[in-house]
Every structure is written in structure tokens, then in C-alpha cells.
């Protein structure tokens, strides 16, 4: 604040004894020099250019990285604001900078899919483990179901079941007998569901992360959302893609 005042050509009444006929810009030179937050390095030398060997090493490194990045195990960044300082002071703060739900974090200006985005590389939010051979005995046992792609299958099953039930319920509104039958079904289902408590547990959690299950090839229940699902990949690009988006509107 005070710095602004000192250098302030703009603060007209601020200087005592300054009259209107004095041109502020002529007499009072604003001190616009940057502060010396970053003094010159006392001993900075340019590193020597790369040797052939180093160039080759870089080339191989780069090729490998590109291969990995295009591969199924790489996951793209979900950070909400990439320009935020990387330094965080607590785990909470560290975790908060990452988006948890892509749909909630979608930028409405750039997030809508445009035609030119269809060639953009696919964004992995979760590594694709299907279609790759794993040596299961080298993984801890609790990850085996994940490797087989059976992870969350019971959750999916219970969702499907619930949907079916609801559909049946709605359909049978007209017929009281059928309604009764449905009620009986429901009771039976509840007693049956007690067996897999874990599924229920994950069901709750599922409410906030329902987008996760759309990524799987199997869970194709929400076909209507497919449109957005592909579109929000592009939350990274803002300027150029934003322009493209504008054209589309």
C-alpha cells in the first residue's frame, strides 16, 4: 500500500504542497523499479552444451517417458489450479488442491466438448489395468481383485439391483397385487443385502463418486452422460480451446 503511495503519480491530493498546475508526471518520477527480491546470482555460469552422450541419454529418457505417458498406467493431473504454488503446508491442503470429481470441477467455459477436441489424448483418471498381464503372486492379495477388474463389482451389482427394483416398483403401480409382490421382494432383498455389508458401505461412498464407474467399459448404465464424459477431458486448455468452444456456440 505504502509503496503505491510513494510512487503514486496517481494520488493527486496526496502530496502536500502540490498544486494542480504542476504536472505530476513531469516533476515526480514514480519509482517503478522492481524491488530486489531476487538479487542477481553472484556466480551464475551457463552450463556447457550437451555432449553427444547426454543427448542420447535424453533422447532415450524422453522416448521412454512418452511411451509411459501414452500407456495405460499413466494418470493425468487433476489439479484445479496448476499455477498455484506447489508448496503446501499440510496434508489437508495438499489433498485439497486436487479435484475429486471431474464433473463438479468442470470449467463451463472450456469444458464442453468441441469437435476439435476429439483428437486430444485420452485422459486417464484411473489407470487402466485391464488388458495387461499381471503376475498376481507378486502383488499383495488384497489387490488381486483390482488387478482382475472385479474391483467394485459388488457395488455395481447392488446399484443395478436397486435400479431394477425401482423400475419394477414404478411399473407395478397400477396393479396392487404386483405392488405387494414387489414389497415382498424388497423385504427379501434387504435381508439378503445384509450379507454384503461392505457393498452397502461403498454404496454410500458411491454417491459422491458416481462418475468413477462410468469409466469402466462394463458400467455403461448412464449412456446419456457419455456426452459430458468425453467432453470434460479438456479442462486443461483454456485460451485456444476456449476460442474453439466459442465457435461452436
Amino acid at each position: 500500500m505504502s509503496r503505491g503511495g510513494r510512487g503514486g503519480g496517481g494520488m493527486r491530493g496526496g502530496l502536500k504542497g502540490a498544486t494542480w498546475d504542476q504536472e505530476a508526471t513531469k516533476d515526480i518520477k514514480p519509482d517503478n523499479k522492481p524491488l530486489e527480491n531476487y538479487p542477481a546470482h553472484p556466480n551464475l555460469k551457463r552450463p556447457p552444451p550437451l555432449s553427444d552422450i547426454e543427448m542420447r541419454q535424453f533422447k532415450y529418457y524422453k522416448t521412454l517417458q512418452t511411451q509411459i505417458h501414452r500407456g495405460p498406467l499413466y494418470t493425468q493431473a487433476t489439479r484445479r489450479n496448476v499455477d498455484n504454488p506447489g508448496k503446501t503446508f499440510s496434508e489437508d491442503q495438499f489433498n485439497r488442491q486436487y479435484g475429486t470429481n471431474r464433473k463438479a470441477d468442470m470449467d463451463p467455459f472450456t469444458g464442453v466438448e468441441t469437435y476439435s477436441m476429439r483428437y486430444l489424448p485420452k485422459q486417464n483418471v484411473i489407470p487402466t489395468l485391464s488388458g495387461r498381464p499381471f503376475n498376481k503372486e507378486l502383488f499383495p492379495r488384497e489387490l488381486w481383485s483390482t488387478l482382475e477388474g472385479k474391483d467394485g463389482e459388488d457395488v455395481r451389482k447392488s446399484i443395478n439391483k436397486a435400479m431394477h427394483k425401482r423400475a419394477r416398483h414404478l411399473a407395478s403401480d397400477a396393479d396392487p397385487k404386483a405392488k405387494e409382490q414387489a414389497l415382498m421382494d424388497k423385504i427379501l432383498a434387504i435381508t439378503g443385502e445384509d450379507e454384503n455389508e461392505e457393498a452397502e458401505e461403498e454404496d454410500k461412498e458411491d454417491e459422491e463418486v458416481d462418475s468413477e464407474f462410468d469409466d469402466d467399459e462394463i458400467g455403461d448404465d448412464y449412456n446419456a452422460e457419455q456426452y459430458f464424459n468425453n467432453g470434460d477431458d479438456a479442462d486443461e486448455g483454456d485460451d485456444g480451446d476456449g476460442g474453439g468452444g466459442g465457435d461452436d456456440y
Binding site: L73, T75, E91, N95, T100, V125, I126, P127, L129, F134, L138, F139, P140, E142, L143, T146, L147, D151, G152, E202, E205, V209, E212
Partner: peptide, 19 residues
């Protein structure tokens, strides 16, 4: 500690173990 969902976490762990 990571605030990740179980599925994400397991997938991430599988990748780490594979590598």
C-alpha cells in the same frame, strides 16, 4: 490420508507395485 476413493487408491497401488 490421501482422500482418494478405494478404487482409485487400489488402482494406484497396483501401478506402484507393478513398477
Amino acid at each position: 490420508h490421501t482422500r482418494l476413493t478405494s478404487k482409485k487408491l487400489r488402482h494406484g497401488l497396483a501401478v506402484l507395485a507393478q513398477q
